[in-house]
Computed example of a mutant assay.
Amino acid sequence: MKSIVPLLHNIPLFQELMEEDLVGIAPLFTVKKVNKGTILFKEGEVGEELYLIHSGVVKIYRLDEAKEVTLALFRDGDFFGEMSLLSNGMTRSATAETMAASTMYVLSRTAFTSFMEKSPRLCLKLLETTMQRLRHANDQIYDLTFLGVRSRIIKTILRLSEQHGISTPDGLLIDVKLTHQQLANLVGTVRESVTKVLQELLDDELILIDKKLITLRNIEAIQAEIR
């Protein structure tokens, strides 16, 4: 499992550990390969594992009266499920489902706890990472409360470009295929609103859309659209 060490170097949770620490924790991970549409865990289940994505895409969502609200999208190099490592018996706050065939490394709470006792630095990094994600959740709550639908859609596109953007000759490509409905689930609105706003941005030549991939042509002009 030494092949996971280079990946750990780039994960915020582990990147401050010494090389020998990374080599020590690497064998504690197990490999999990799953198909698109696989439910990794459900909201309300007891969580016992941290997931580290080697390849693929995973969405984290909750169901509100049968309506799906997507909280986050994770892909290569991201991790999720870290809250389960903090407390024994803690239940999952959301559901995790793969959006593509995925390969990931899984770390159980039991294995992590025994290693964490030897690495106070890892304990502090886990708390720091958890707080960062909590701040992100607070930002989402603020947007839902104070921003209109159009501004939320645009802000979500900008956030996705920061998380998954790739520079191309045409602009900043969001390297995750999203249907209008999936984008609506991220924003907390209906598909028709997303379609309308995307068409407006297309008409203004601020974005390009090709095969469900969105490219931002002018970041500054798009940011100015948030009111």
Score class of each variant (00 low, 15 high):
1 M>C: 09
1 M>R: 10
2 K>R: 14
3 S>F: 12
4 I>S: 03
4 I>D: 00
6 P>Q: 04
6 P>V: 02
9 H>T: 10
10 N>P: 02
10 N>L: 06
11 I>N: 05
12 P>A: 09
13 L>R: 08
19 E>H: 07
20 E>R: 13
22 L>D: 09
23 V>Y: 10
23 V>K: 15
23 V>I: 14
26 A>M: 02
26 A>R: 04
31 V>S: 08
35 N>I: 03
35 N>G: 06
39 I>D: 04
41 F>H: 08
43 E>A: 08
47 G>W: 10
49 E>S: 13
52 L>M: 04
53 I>S: 05
57 V>E: 12
58 V>W: 00
61 Y>I: 01
62 R>L: 06
62 R>Q: 12
68 E>H: 00
70 T>Y: 03
76 D>H: 06
84 S>I: 12
88 N>V: 14
89 G>F: 03
91 T>P: 03
95 T>A: 02
95 T>D: 06
96 A>I: 05
99 M>P: 10
103 T>D: 03
110 T>A: 11
111 A>S: 09
116 M>Q: 09
117 E>S: 09
117 E>K: 14
120 P>M: 08
122 L>V: 03
128 E>M: 11
130 T>H: 11
131 M>P: 00
135 R>Q: 14
135 R>E: 12
136 H>D: 13
138 N>S: 02
139 D>F: 04
140 Q>A: 14
141 I>F: 11
145 T>F: 05
148 G>Y: 09
149 V>H: 00
159 R>D: 12
159 R>K: 15
162 E>N: 14
165 G>S: 06
166 I>T: 08
173 L>A: 05
174 I>D: 04
175 D>I: 08
178 L>N: 00
182 Q>R: 00
183 L>Q: 01
184 A>Q: 05
184 A>W: 10
191 R>H: 02
193 S>Y: 05
195 T>W: 13
198 L>F: 12
201 L>I: 10
201 L>K: 11
202 L>P: 04
203 D>N: 01
204 D>P: 00
207 I>C: 01
210 D>R: 15
210 D>S: 14
211 K>T: 07
215 T>Y: 10
215 T>D: 06
217 R>Q: 13
217 R>C: 14
222 I>C: 01
225 E>R: 15
227 R>T: 07
